[in-house]
Amino acid sequence: MPDTFLLAGKPFTSRLIIGTGKYRSFAEMQAAHAASGAEMVTVAVNRVPLDRATESFLDHLSPEMQILPNTAGCYDVEHAVRTARLAREALDTDWIKLEVIGDPVTLLPDNEQTLQAARILVKEGFIVLPYFSDDLIMAKKLLDAGCPAVMPLAAPIGSGLGVQNPANLKIMREQLPDATIIVDAGVGVPSDAAIAMELGADAILMNTAIAEAGDSASMATAMNFAVQAGRLAYLSGRMPKRLYASASSPIAGAIN
């Protein structure tokens, strides 16, 4: 049976969602997107420059990719809601990655304002995918508010530190067995992605780990493998951890 990833009722084959920021060139971004196997990419809403002609960034994305606009750079409910509405009008999509940031140094989310914004946007018919701190209680509140998935961070955005609190992710998975959990932000290398998936994340959203890699396309391939490997491992069920050895070869019958 194929292991389909259902997000807000929409089936995806890939459990990797990737960003479009920080790439050194459009060609590099396109190669990385193709190599990643991702079917959805994030984009940011930004003012049109008034002093020069601009080409549409979206023209550089494969038409097969689902576009997920974000509310990056918003520090309060009002800006996040306004940004989401603008994104919906421009792209004709109800999907929004909700970010309400609490502080410019850590870019850690303001969970309280994220929840408030989520409630408003859900009422307006948005499919709200909220980025938030890896906290079970906040996850429950966001799900209760009508978010079809929650997106806890692994570590600060762009930090590449990997899963800093595996226990939180594991608790979230165990306590919310039916929720869709997407780990968003903080993955640095494929092993980080694999760990998040092994802990039971349904998918991973990443940007910098691929965009800032020496060879983005090659790293995108590696991330694709890692997400698949971690997913398979989670479904397979890991062996128990033991403090002491457990022989793999029979002890009885060894010559002496």
Partner: peptide
Amino acid sequence: IEVVHFVGGG
């Protein structure tokens, strides 16, 4: 007035 478009982002 705000006129917005899309740029790369994560």
